[in-house]
Design a protein around this nucleic acid. Structure first.
Length: 566
RNA sequence: UGGGCCGUCGCCAAGCGGUAAGGCACCGGAUUUUGAUUCCGGUAUACCUAGGUUCGAAUCCUAGCGGCCCAGCCA
């Protein structure tokens, strides 16, 4: 791995870790973990966490990072996500080596430790139904009430918990709860649930269990069993830290390892959503084509859109790690991609809105095979052949009848350079007799201008083109932001995120002329279509003979910017 | 309104008592066969506000103000 993402920034978490290393805490070892729940696909917010956790593991000498599936809720989880998550982490460029774990690996140990808690009088079986438990919990401002089952004897608790495990009770009839304090101002400490009865088939443990441990009980113990030193999570778990610590404190003799939980703020990106629930809704209600829809901030979507692992890693490095709420602009992400592809994408030409041009001083059968550079800054990209013929296509907005001030492209009677080829002059236009729309431009090439500046005048404009007689065809997908407002989930004035979906987020252009060489493009391969943007061959819809290009990101366009202002 | 957390340029973000880094965005200008890239230059007397401590405060203290999270047998 090389590139800008190698510059490791020092954030408050790394500062803590470096202090811990210096003080020889944990024998100088650093063990982190990335703990996804397999109930959806990963998104750019997860990438932030992945880059943090795995980044730390690669950066310090005595360090490693585990991939652990937090699979304690079988009803919502699927095997398919377990595969896609691993694929995404690997694609981002990270490796967990042999350290692949499942929280469900620890179900046996977790159960034993629950009995230990019961024996210590620190947990009890509660027979309140869900609704009653909510009432007993109290509110933000009022303390809760103790469950009437709170004082069951150790023996009774043990017997009942064993019966729960043995399947002697119906789903939801009892829970195992920690005995902490119903008066705690922290609601998470008001006797939180540790185990619930759920007859659900688990993707890993199959039907071995009918009781499942909760996140709060499972996570801290899983961390401790794996010898995690720094358990990094997002801010919403800050209120859970006292519980994380409480459980491990009770089990000090049994486990003897107490990882440090440190929280950082989650990533918010403008004009999109990061909530798994909302992403799932968008997919299920078909507002997008699937989890890998190129408009989605999922790793799969970004990959299909044309984002590169390096660009995403660089982005994660640039946004930093803090506890402050942050809403990062899309422009930063886009810039990271441009920065990568500017150096790494070969160039090609395509015309998205074609206007026919006849080069009248070329013979009908003119065929000039131009060898052009695949990258004007780097010879390593080699060359390709681009055929020049009498008829070509140029971009419709590269010609103007009434040019705005400062227009550098083609006008009637004016000159422009055809990229990699000659300077041409536009002599006249012909129109559609019905609509009066311009149909064809009639131009003359200046033979003296191949690889040479024209004599006695300056030609400022350069436009791209494709032969009308020898070209390939491609469908081109143009993407815009999925939502029309910066924070689609902020609905203070009523409504939902669905009200902010941008109806113009996808534009499909069919059968556009592209240069012949693109027929050899590989799935997922990146190109810069000169003067237009970066595109990548769609890994899903593209087939041999049927090219589909996704626009990953447009080029910067200071002209369009000025135009908009005028 | 109980508890937890946060507040430095339009957006991220350094800074940890010695006089406001950097990136993105934006605005100029140079070079350019991509109006791209590259290159130069500009952009917070100011760090939520008000007091205080100090020779000196974004950094320490006090009081306010604003924002985010928490009442799943979700994670």
């Amino acid at each position: 791995m090389s590139g800008p993402d190698d510059k490791k920034p020092i954030d408050f978490i790394r500062t803590i870790i470096e202090q811990d290393i210096e003080r020889n805490l944990n024998g100088g070892r650093v063990v982190t973990r990335f703990p996804p729940e397999p109930n959806g696909m990963l998104h750019i917010g997860h990438a932030k966490s992945i880059c943090l956790n795995f980044g730390i593991a690669t950066q310090y000498s005595n360090a490693r990072c585990h991939l652990r599936f937090d699979d304690t809720n079988p009803e919502k989880e699927e095997m398919a996500y377990i595969h896609s998550i691993q694929e995404d982490v690997r694609w981002l460029g990270f490796d967990w080596g042999s350290h692949l774990y499942f929280a469900s690996d620890y179900f046996g140990r977790l159960y034993e430790l629950a009995e230990v808690l019961i024996q210590k009088g620190m947990a009890y079986v509660c027979s309140l139904c869900a609704e009653d438990m909510r009432t007993y919990r109290g509110t933000l401002t009022q303390p809760g009430q103790e469950s009437p089952y709170r004082s069951r004897s150790v023996a009774e608790n043990l017997a009942m918990f064993r019966a729960m495990r043995a399947g002697e009770y119906p789903d939801g009839s009892h829970t195992l709860r920690a005995k902490i304090s119903m008066a705690s101002p922290n609601i998470n400490m008001r006797d939180p649930t540790l185990y619930r009865i759920r007859r659900a088939h688990h993707h890993q443990t199959k039907d071995a269990w009918c009781i499942y441990p909760t996140y709060d009980y499972t996570h801290c113990i899983s961390d401790a069993l794996e010898g995690i030193t720094h358990s990094l999570c997002t801010l919403e778990f800050e209120d859970h830290r006292p519980l994380y610590d409480w459980i491990l404190d009770q089990l000090k003799e049994e486990i003897g390892c107490h990882p440090q939980q440190i929280e950082f703020s989650r990533l918010e990106l403008e004009f999109t959503v990061m909530s798994k629930r909302i992403l799932t809704t968008l997919v299920q209600q078909r507002h997008v084509s699937g989890w890998d829809d190129p408009r989605l901030p999922t790793i799969a979507g970004l990959r299909r859109r044309g984002y590169t692992p390096a660009s995403i890693r660089n982005f994660c490095s640039l946004i930093g790690i803090t506890k402050a709420p942050n809403h990062v602009e899309m422009a930063l992400l886009e810039n990271c991609l441009r920065e990568d592809l500017e150096i790494n994408a070969p160039r090609a030409m395509a015309v998205l809105d074609p206007l026919r041009v006849v080069l009248e001083n070329l013979p009908e059968d003119h065929l000039e095979e131009l060898m052009v550079a695949n990258h004007s800054q780097s010879e390593a990209f080699g060359t390709r052949m681009v055929p020049l013929t009498r008829e070509i296509f140029i971009e419709r907005d590269d010609f103007a009848e009434n040019p705005p001030k400062g227009y550098k492209r083609l006008v009637l009677g004016g000159e422009v350079r055809l990229r990699h080829a000659y300077v041409i002059r536009c002599e006249r236009v012909t129109r559609n007799p019905q609509t009066q729309a311009i149909e064809t431009l009639h131009c003359q090439v200046d033979w003296a201008t191949m690889n040479k500046a024209p004599e006695g005048r300056k030609v400022k404009g350069v436009i791209h083109w494709v032969s009308a007689q020898r070209h390939g065809k491609a469908h081109v997908h143009l993407y815009d932001r999925l939502f029309s407002v910066p924070q689609p989930t902020d609905n203070k004035g009523g409504g939902t995120f669905l009200d902010h979906i941008n109806p113009g987020s996808l534009t499909v252009l069919a059968d556009r002329p592209v240069e012949e060489s693109l027929a050899r493009a590989q799935l997922g391969e990146h190109f810069q279509f000169e003067r237009l943007g970066y595109f990548c061959l769609d890994s899903c819809d593209s087939k041999p003979g049927h090219l589909v290009f996704n626009r990953s990101v447009s080029l910067r366009d200071s002209w369009a910017k000025g135009e908009k202002k005028a």
